[in-house]
Design a protein around this nucleic acid. Structure first.
Lengths: 227, 227
DNA sequence: ACAAAAGTGTTAATTCTACACCCATGA
DNA sequence: TCATGGGTGTAGAATTAACACTTTTGT
C-alpha cells in the first residue's frame, strides 16, 4: 500500500436535494443556514461523513436526524469539489437527491428548522454552490424518471393514473397527454390495478393503482420522449 | 461555519476506468498493482486527491502523470465509500471513466507499467472493488453514449460511418443494422461529411465524417433503442 | 338529465426494422 | 467483369400524438 499517512486528508460532506410534490409542481426543501458565514441563507440539508459510515448511510443519517425524514429514497448525483467552494475550508461534497411524499412527513419538524418548500421553477438564491447542486440533481432526477418510473416515492401507496401523470408533468415541467400517458404506463406492466377507487376527485371515481413489488426497479427504454 | 476541525477527515482517491476501442470491441486498460497487499493484482489507475486540486484535476493528473495519457475525455461515474473497501485504510474513491483513442496514444509508456488491454466481455479478476467500478462505469458509458453521440474520443478526427457503428456495437455489445444506423445518425445533424474518402477498407472508398464542433455535446433523445 | 372526470377508441404521423437493391472501383 | 464494401430505397411493424367519443355517478 502507498503510505496513506503522507496523503492529504479531506472533509467529506453530503448535501441532500430534497424533492417533494405539492400543488401540481415539484418542490425543493430548503433550510435557512444556521451558522456563519451566510447565516440565514437558503441551503440544502447536509452534514459531514463520519469514519464509521459510508456515504449512503451518512445521507440517510442527515435526513433522519437533521430533517426528520425517514425511510427515504436517495440517489447519488455526483461530487462537488472545487477548492474554494466552501469558504470555511476545503470540503468535498457528495450530492444526493431525495424524494419524499410531502403528505406523509411530519410538517412540524420541518417548521422547527424553518424549512420551506420552493417550486423548482422559482428557486431562491442559495448559499455557496447549492443552486448548481439542485440543477444537477434535477437533471439526474429527470434522467432516472425516464428509465425507472419514479413517483412511488413522491406519492401515497395507492394512487390514480391522473396523479401519476401530474407527478411526471411536474418532474419534466411539461404537459403530457393523459390518454397517451395511461396507455404508455400500463403497457409497461409495472402497475397493479386495485379493486377500489378514489372518489374524492370525481363523481365516477378513478381506480387506484400500486407498483408491482418485483417490477419496482426495472430499467425501461424510455418513458417520456424528449424534444 | 460548523467547526470543521471536530469532524473526521478522509483520504479521497480517484480511480479511472480507461476504455479504448480495438479490434472491434471495447477494452479496459488495467495495471498490475505495484504495492502490497494484492501486489500484482489487476487494478485501475488511481491516485489520491490533493488539497490544491479538484477531483477532475486529480483524475486528469493521474492519467497524465501515471498513465501517460493526455487530453482525455473524462466523466464522473460515482463514489465508492464502503468502510472496508480498501484494506489498508478508510478511503473514499471517486470513479471516473476515460475514453482514449488507442492508436494515438504512446504504447511504450503503457508497456513500461505493464498495463494491458482487456475486453470488457472478459474482464480479469481485479483488486478490491475495482471490478464493480468497471461495471458501473460501463453502465454510465452506455447511458451517456445513448444521449450524447460519443465515439469522438475513441476514434480519429475523421472516421467513416461504419467505424462509428463498430464503436457503438462495441459499447452496447450488440449488432446494429448499418443502413438504419446511418440514417439515424445522419438525421441527428451532428456530423459533417468531408470531401475525401477512406480507401483502405474498400475499393469504392467510404466518405469520412467529423463531428460538427458546436453540436458536440447536444443532448439527444435516444440513439439506440433498448429491449 | 347533466356536469365533470374516468376511461376507451381511432386515425394520422413518425420512427424502427429488416431487407433488397444499386453504385463505384481495383484487381 | 466480378467481388466487395459503400450507400440508398422501401414496405411493414411499432410507437407516438392528437383528439373524439363513451362511461359512470352525485347532484
Amino acid at each position: 500500500m502507498e503510505q496513506l499517512y503522507k496523503r492529504d486528508r479531506h472533509y467529506v460532506a453530503v448535501d441532500c436535494v430534497i424533492f417533494g410534490y405539492l400543488d401540481g409542481d415539484l418542490k425543493l426543501l430548503a433550510y435557512p443556514r444556521a451558522f456563519a458565514p451566510y447565516e440565514g441563507g437558503w441551503s440544502l440539508m447536509g452534514g459531514f461523513l463520519n469514519d464509521d459510515e459510508n456515504l449512503d448511510e451518512a445521507a440517510t443519517r442527515v435526513l433522519e436526524l437533521r430533517a426528520g425524514l425517514s425511510d427515504i429514497f436517495l440517489q447519488e448525483v455526483g461530487c462537488f469539489s472545487a477548492i474554494n467552494r466552501d469558504t470555511a475550508g476545503r470540503v468535498v461534497s457528495v450530492v444526493y437527491y431525495a424524494l419524499v411524499d410531502v403528505n406523509t412527513q411530519d410538517a412540524s419538524i420541518l417548521d422547527a428548522h424553518g424549512a420551506q418548500w420552493f417550486s423548482v421553477k422559482h428557486l431562491p438564491d442559495m448559499v455557496l454552490d447549492h443552486k448548481q447542486m439542485v440543477e444537477r440533481a434535477l437533471i439526474q432526477l429527470r434522467s432516472d424518471a425516464n428509465e425507472r418510473l419514479l413517483g412511488k416515492e413522491l406519492m401515497p401507496q395507492y394512487f390514480t393514473l391522473l396523479q401519476l401523470r401530474n407527478v411526471y408533468q411536474a418532474i419534466f415541467d411539461r404537459d403530457l397527454e393523459l390518454a397517451n400517458f395511461r396507455k404508455k404506463i400500463l403497457s409497461l406492466d409495472i402497475l397493479e390495478k386495485q379493486d377500489f377507487k378514489n372518489t374524492t376527485e370525481s363523481r365516477k371515481g378513478a381506480f387506484y393503482f400500486a407498483f408491482k413489488p418485483e417490477a419496482e426497479n426495472r430499467v425501461l427504454d424510455r418513458i417520456v420522449k424528449l424534444n
